[in-house]
Design a protein around this nucleic acid. Structure first.
Lengths: 247, 247
DNA sequence: CCGTGGATATCGACC
DNA sequence: GGTCGATGTCCACGG
């Protein structure tokens, strides 16, 4: 497109007519912009579940990847939404702006009908940047491999991701006495599920090694729930409190 | 406040100066409005984890309940966020607009620094409406309680949410032969996890009732994964295909 | 493509 | 406030 104005990054209308709003939304979608509409509306969802929202003021966001989000002034979660991969449509019906986001597999439809549009915006910029997240389970593993004594004095790591019939063990090694040790890492507080996981590893490895081999199982996490703690004792497993590196 | 303009529901600035943007955001927060800012920014999060986003165009939403959401043009989920209950702050630093959302327990900080602000909006309306969702697990339970024969001929429900050491059973009852039956409901296709859950209920109830009591376990869902199906057979459990009522 | 497990999960219910 | 289970979970990864 040769229109020099095409490069402009935002387009906003205040209190537009339904037709003007429809055009602005349609143009925004067309240009792969992020489109937002704020106003008084009802919301219909029909698909894996069914829902209906009475008239209220809400913020609707249509993303170029096909996602839609309907937000009220409360809560971290949208009150209604559609995942990426939908087709957005904007049209007027009985003199009102209607936004629809549709997809198949599964068949789902989100429909927002505006009694009043206070603002329509289209933002054409893009992100292009990746999130750098640290403090993960991988960081915790690095930390333990660098300083095995954090687990216990004399611990020697022998392998990471050692394979067992029950899956890959986070860290496999031996203690000061030369006994096999299975270490299961979790970056946050753990519940009974992690205990079950560790137990399966220990069982699988004992079967794998020798008939009468004993394998120690140690769960490493910042903390543990009460129920999980009891389960650990029950199954002769151990717990070491360690957090992923702070930075 | 006696300002007649106070009642206006939206306030929007295009390409404001950092100071003007700060004032608009601060006023919006003050008035319990939903505030959005779009522009080129970096994002810092530090708390339960740590993350950093390089410069990019993003849409930031600050809610009056203390939630913040940072959206790019992709994905249903925000790339960064803060849950409700935070304090929002807006200020200028080195000539740039900075938004911060802070909370304690746990100590978390989200910080968005704008290199360029394309738009600031404050929306003062409120929602006040509740979501009506149908086609839930509860609907499925109602359906089964109204027509127990849907499960199998002669089934008699005796209790819902019957408590066991493993948690509350969806429906507890007895079959035509008077044998105890545990029913676990799922509104959608189930995997191995649901089988485990049902098994825990059955085990717990067998321990609860008598030493040699036998309890039947029936999983009710629209469909079941292959692996889960095998697990059911393995553990002597049963499956009945039923969907939540359509409307 | 389906299935499985992780998440700064979120959210509600219950203790 | 914690603890646990459910979610229209979403999401990445592996078979």
């Amino acid at each position: 497109m040769s229109d020099p104005e095409y490069g402009q990054r935002t387009e906003t209308l205040q209190r537009p007519t339904p037709a003007a709003a429809r055009d602005a939304v349609a143009t925004g979608i067309e240009r792969d912009a992020l489109v937002t509409v704020y106003g008084r509306c009802t919301v219909d969802y029909d698909g894996r579940a069914t829902s209906f929202l009475e008239e209220g003021d809400r913020h609707v966001m249509l993303k170029p990847d096909g996602a839609s989000l309907v937000h009220t002034d409360e809560g971290q979660q949208p009150v209604n939404w559609q995942p990426p991969g939908c087709d957005h449509e904007a049209f007027c019906e009985d003199g009102a702006l209607v936004l629809e986001s549709l997809r198949s597999t599964p068949d789902e439809r989100l429909r927002v009908r505006f009694q009043e549009v206070l603002q329509v915006s289209a933002f054409a910029g893009t992100d292009e940047s990746e999130l750098a997240l640290i403090g993960t389970e991988e960081d915790l593993r690095q930390r333990l491999l660098e300083e095995p004594d954090l687990l216990e004095s004399g611990f020697t790591p022998l392998a990471t991701e050692r394979d067992t019939p029950a899956g890959a063990v986070d860290i496999y090694g031996e203690d000061a006495a030369g006994q096999a040790v299975v270490v299961e890492l979790k970056r946050r507080r753990v519940g009974p599920d992690a205990v079950g996981q560790l137990r399966r590893y220990v069982d699988a490895l004992e079967r794998d090694l020798h008939a009468e081999a004993t394998v120690r199982g140690i769960l490493v996490a910042p903390s543990v729930t009460d129920r999980a703690s009891r389960l650990l004792t029950e199954h002769g497993l151990e717990f070491v409190s360690l957090e992923p590196p702070a930075e």
